[in-house]
């Protein structure tokens, strides 16, 4: 057995891969990133994830994903294809509920009209 660190500047690296850990902490919740860890197999990664990150809380689902399997959009805003670029610089209310809130007052208006004494007579 070699003495780590005493022989030279470099040490052989263990053949572990990086796994990203996702867990569902509410029965109807989304899978949420928790942590990353190193493991030699998915089974080992699951076991480490439970022991290291989730032993204090009830969880409903657990994923470990090899980091290599994740394609990521760049987060650096100086990168021309960074993640925030997915927000198109166009009006986008057409797909938001807030653009349709006026319908509530419209309906209220129509209901009140319908219930005036004139129309009820």
């Amino acid at each position: 057995m070699t003495n780590p660190g005493q022989s030279g500047e470099t040490v052989p690296h263990q053949d572990f891969g990086v796994y990203e850990v996702f867990a569902q902490t509410q029965p109807l919740g989304a899978m949420e990133w928790q942590a990353s860890l190193m493991a030699g197999s998915p089974q080992m990664a699951l076991s480490l994830a439970q022991q290291n990150f989730l032993r204090r809380r009830q969880i409903y689902g657990l994923w470990v994903v090899p980091r290599d399997a994740i394609a990521k959009a760049p987060t650096d805003p100086t990168d021309p294809s960074h993640a925030a670029d997915a927000l198109f610089r166009l009006p986008k209310g057409y797909r938001e509920l807030s653009d349709y809130h006026y319908l509530v007052s419209k309906w209220r208006q129509y209901q009140q009209q319908a219930m005036t004494p004139d129309t009820m007579a």
């Binding site: 003495n3 780590p4 660190g5 005493q6 470099t10 040490v11 052989p12 690296h13 263990q14």
Partner: peptide, 9 residues
Amino acid sequence: EDIMADLFA
């Protein structure tokens, strides 16, 4: 492993 090696050295 490099961190550990550095610790021991």
